[in-house]
């Protein structure tokens, strides 16, 4: 909604928008990028309150250690190399699972969006598999793969596949028939029609799938690493629990939050780059 409202003036010619621009005070703030600053205001406030609560003794240290304690734990883990090693392995798992599941979902989405035959062959099966919560497969996956890498990568891939599949499929299927007809009139080859008309039109939908899939990717990885792993951030948290190291547990949770945010920001950036043409993403000139 907010995006649409922002984008509206762009539909008019620049000469018309110039006098209608927001009041000077808002323009001044815009230069400081209020959006970015505001976005971090609430997390910063939370940390201040948290720190104050911990320092004043309102929050017991064995329930929730102070941010400074968590930072110290982070520093120690970083220094010992443990944090970096676990971060690396988690990242690689996420990446591998995402590449496999996302790639498969994308290809299936394209195939089923473009070919009725392919859709008839696979869509029903995919919809059935989709309705099984993939985390319910954990016991089976442990039986199959033990607690090796394959288990985690398999689960992540399975979780990521469906959001990408469904949104790619939907994006391709809802390609504007008027534009497709235009492409045909102008003698576009099927390949050109796909790359110039159908795929660009499907991109907004594919990005929705991408961002959704990134969320599922982290979720799956956390659960999988918490239940069965001998390395990774999730393992680090479970291991710390056994030794009652609450600060490390909280550290792991915060790292997940940051990683999730980072992945989402990257996806947004990519979206912004790819969808420049979209009125909702056009920056004011």
């Amino acid at each position: 909604m907010a995006l649409a409202a922002q984008a509206e003036p762009n539909l008019e010619t620049p000469s018309e928008t110039a006098p209608a621009a927001p009041a000077p005070s808002r323009l001044g703030l815009a230069r400081l990028d209020p959006g970015a600053a505001l976005a971090w205001l609430v997390p910063a406030l939370l940390i201040v309150v948290w720190q104050a609560g911990a320092s004043l003794g309102w929050i017991p240290g064995n329930v929730l250690p102070a941010p400074t304690a968590v930072a110290a734990a982070g520093w120690r883990a970083l220094w010992s190399g443990e944090l970096w090693a676990n971060l690396q392995i988690s990242f690689l798992r996420a990446l591998a699972g995402f590449a496999i599941g996302g790639g498969l979902g994308f290809v299936l989405g394209l195939a089923n969006g473009l070919s009725k035959l392919s859709e008839r062959l696979t869509d029903t099966t995919l919809q059935m598999v989709r309705n099984v919560p993939h985390l319910a497969l954990i016991p089976l996956v442990i039986l199959w793969f033990g607690i090796d890498e394959e288990a985690k990568i398999f689960l992540v891939a399975l979780g990521v596949l469906f959001p990408i599949y469904i949104n790619t499929f939907h994006g391709i299927r809802t390609a504007d028939p008027q534009l497709v007809e235009m492409g045909r009139i102008y003698g576009m080859s099927p390949w050109r029609l796909f790359t110039r008309v159908i795929l660009p039109g499907a991109l907004p939908s594919i990005f929705v799938g991408l961002r959704f899939a990134l969320g599922i990717m982290w979720l799956t990885l956390i659960v999988a690493e918490t239940i069965s792993a001998s390395s990774g951030i999730g393992y680090m948290a479970m291991n710390a629990r056994e030794f009652m190291l609450v600060d490390v547990v909280v550290l792991a949770i915060l790292i997940y939050a940051l990683l999730g945010k980072l992945a989402d920001s990257l996806a947004r950036l990519l979206e912004r780059l790819c969808l420049q043409w979209h009125p909702a993403f056009q920056t004011k000139r």
Binding site: Q178, L179, E181, M182, G183, I185, Y186, G187, M188, R196, V197, P200, G201, L203, L275, W277, H278
Partner: peptide, 24 residues
């Protein structure tokens, strides 16, 4: 392929710049 047709809607590719749309 001999004829061209213009509709009530311009049917431009929203993701292509004006020049690229003409190049179509």
């Amino acid at each position: 392929g001999v004829a061209r047709i213009m509709f009530q809607e311009p049917r431009l590719l929203p993701w292509a710049r004006v020049l690229a749309n003409v190049e179509v």
